[in-house]
């Protein structure tokens, strides 16, 4: 019955879909191939695989510093976005529905507005605060734009949670903090983790805000890659891109495993 109900797509349609998917993945594979080229310009390896561009990358103090700075910034901004977004979502979950719809929408706004607009505004405000070229400046900007990812995943997790659970905990005398800590958190942990992963990836990859705010003291990895592409296009950029891809894929696998365990 199910096969009839499914009414599988016809062969040409399936064929084009797989082609499109391959085209979506292709550029990523190309980046890996170019990163191990043995030639001095962007190209596929000719006479064998060479790791020289990874050596360039991992022996350059500038690149290492950028990797480290991006990592620190992503960690801290993820924690801030995670805390604000999770608490906010839990609050929305129990506030009367009219208000909570508006609140959740407000917390999603950074996903809707173009980063160039926020980047420009933050640049002006941060300048007044003396936050240009500081960790604080980038972390706060990344945390604000990371909140929506946490709100989305945590709200989804909360939607599957029976509100009676929370009422039961309270009627047994648990206070607010205890209820959240012992009852709500364990149940929505996978949602929180997913949110943290997405917020981390968001910060780790973010370029437009960094174009305005980064400087000598704080020069994130995407910003250094951007400058690298504009200054001197050599296969080291492909090695950097590969590192960015691997970190993202690793985190996504982690996120999937986290969700799988819960199921």
């Amino acid at each position: 019955m199910s096969s009839f109900a499914r009414d599988n797509a016809s062969l040409p349609v399936r064929g084009s879909a797989w082609t499109i998917i391959c085209l979506m993945i292709l550029p990523m594979s190309v980046v890996f191939a170019v990163s191990v080229t043995d030639r001095p310009y962007l190209s596929l390896p000719e006479n064998g695989v060479s790791l020289q561009y990874y050596r360039n990358l991992f022996t350059s103090p500038e690149w290492l510093l950028s990797i480290w700075q991006s990592f620190v910034i992503a960690c801290v901004s993820t924690m801030v976005a995670g805390a604000l977004g999770t608490l906010g979502s839990i609050g929305c979950w129990r506030i009367s529905s009219g208000a909570s719809n508006v609140l959740r929408l407000v917390m999603l706004v950074p996903l809707m507005l173009p980063p160039i607009v926020y980047g420009l505004g933050a640049y002006q405000v941060w300048a007044d605060l003396g936050w240009i070229n500081t960790y604080t400046g980038i972390i706060v900007a990344h945390a604000m734009t990371g909140i929506p990812y946490v709100v989305i995943t945590v709200s989804t997790a909360l939607a599957g949670l029976d509100p009676k659970l929370e009422q039961a905990a309270r009627s047994l005398g648990a206070g607010m903090g205890a209820t959240i800590w012992y009852v709500i958190f364990p149940n929505i942990m996978p949602g929180i983790l997913s949110g943290l992963v997405f917020a981390f990836i968001h910060s780790w990859d973010e370029l437009v805000i960094a174009l305005f705010i980064a400087g000598r003291n704080v020069f994130t990895l995407p910003r250094r890659m951007w400058d690298g592409i504009n200054e001197n296009l050599d296969p080291t950029m492909a090695a950097v891109a590969s590192v960015l891809i691997l970190v993202t894929l690793g985190l996504l696998v982690f996120e999937l495993l986290g969700r799988g365990r819960k199921r």
Binding site: Q124, A127, D128, G130, I132, N133, G215
Partner: peptide, 10 residues
Amino acid sequence: LTMVQANDVT
């Protein structure tokens, strides 16, 4: 210009 106007020249 932003640095100068914000009086935070580095």
